[in-house]
Design a protein around this nucleic acid. Structure first.
Lengths: 249, 249
DNA sequence: ATATCTTTTGCAGTATTTTGCAACCTTTTT
DNA sequence: AAAAAGGTTGCAAAATACTGCAAAAGATAT
């Protein structure tokens, strides 16, 4: 077998599966691992793949150097935020919870819109503070150092005393039958209170979270009035959700 | 399975749900927790996520947020902060109001000190959130866009329900006879509430503000327990204040 | 065809990396 | 304060990598 053929097999494998193990290929091609290793070293130097300990991975598959400062799936979240801000009318009173999707939403609130916004998220409060016509009210509570969101009994108590037109919130997991779920119990308590405090609860979520669930339940899907994903409302992935009594945007 | 694949799985999980538990991932990928821990340590050092106790979280949240303007008289304020942190003992419950002097103070809180800190200032909350052993509780209220401090009836009501060991606050103006005064009515209300809620109120102020006054009064000097300036307590500029019944530091 | 040279391949011995484990410390929770 | 969960360190086994070398294969020249 020619060297070029071998190398092509390796590249095909990487293209198809994003990875190969040296030992696998060596066995399949019936040559020594050393030979395959030398092939991979060469292909790496030609920048056709990335050699790693024990194998090789596709170049696109590497996270080299790109510090993950960016928001995951920002394009989708941005699309969601665009749809969400359409709901707003001047004079509305809203709650914005937290998370990166809500943060995108907060950023996109038009500066000519007069709003009263409650939030327990520090990043969102800072963002809203930039909008001249938005009155920002912080919901106090114990601060989570990870999410920079206030929660706890205090937050829930404060929420119990208000009623707003819309609440905007994300979720860790959502399933058409199981509803909204979270990994974290504290989160659930606060989100429950938010849903209760709002005439219409708006769920902002990327489609990747659809049909997933975790241990603690926030609420049934029916308690949400509007669900916004980056998908078109007619997308087939939303089929299960269309049957439920909620508006899809 | 290649190390890179594992790390990719971890990054995906973090990107999607903002968090992972080491034990969960270890079970899913069928490797020891130690291996996952080492992966996470590496990814952390590459700034692709943030390692926390028991798991990892997304960097996207760890929002630094505040546009850092130049602080006037930073050297003096830093000196004041140095003196102020000496008062703290592990287990103390304190209120930290806002302003650049208090912010310096918050930054200088030693990271080995266990504290419970109430604050209504967003910049200070963000700073305190970096201290592992400090529990941060946000006092909610209407957010001032200039100072990023929550105030209003809500804040005052929340303050009325707590009692703390120390409160740390700045002032716009201070005079040995007229006490602490402000230009701003809202500010005064909140500061009054803070002084009332604390066993000992600690005033942090640069000496330039001594012997000045404005329209609204926060409290008499006697209601303050400790006043800290950048000056030596024996400095002649503090003469008027030495006669009053407060501790100078 | 033979001798010479170059490239490729496998092997052996020696490094290096990765991984899991155990003992011991630290943080968190109760 | 105790218990539980998580973290750290050092270590040893296993897997993988690297180096030098020599046989094999192929190419080139005489």
């Amino acid at each position: 077998m020619l060297k070029q053929e071998r190398q092509q097999v390796i590249l095909n494998e990487v293209a198809l599966h994003n990875r190969v193990l040296l030992t696998d290929i060596a066995e399949v091609l019936n040559v020594s691992v050393d030979t395959i290793r030398r092939d991979v070293i060469q292909l790496d130097s030609e920048r056709k793949l990335k050699k790693v300990h024990g194998g090789a991975i596709s170049l696109g598959y590497t996270n080299e150097g790109i510090p993950q400062q960016k928001v995951y799936a920002l394009d989708k979240k941005s699309k969601i935020a665009d749809k969400a801000v359409q709901l707003l009318k001047s004079g509305n009173v809203i709650i914005v919870h937290g998370g990166t999707t809500c943060l995108e939403f907060a950023k996109k609130i038009p500066s000519n819109l007069s709003l009263t916004c409650f939030t327990m998220s520090l990043p969102i409060a800072l963002e809203l503070a930039k909008k001249p016509k938005v009155e920002v009210i912080i919901i106090g509570g114990t601060l989570s150092k990870e999410s920079l969101i206030a929660s706890g009994a205090n937050a829930i108590h404060n929420l119990s005393k208000i009623t707003v037109d819309y609440s905007f919130l994300g979720t860790g997991y959502v399933d058409a039958n199981y509803g909204l779920t979270e990994f974290d119990w504290e989160s659930v308590q606060v989100k429950k209170a938010i849903v209760q405090s709002s005439k219409k609860a708006v769920l902002l979520t990327i489609s990747e979270k659809l049909n997933s669930q975790n241990r603690y339940k926030t609420c049934d899907l029916q308690e949400i009035s509007i669900m916004i994903t980056e998908l078109s409302p007619s997308d087939s992935k939303l089929e299960d959700f269309r049957e439920k009594n909620i508006t899809l945007l």
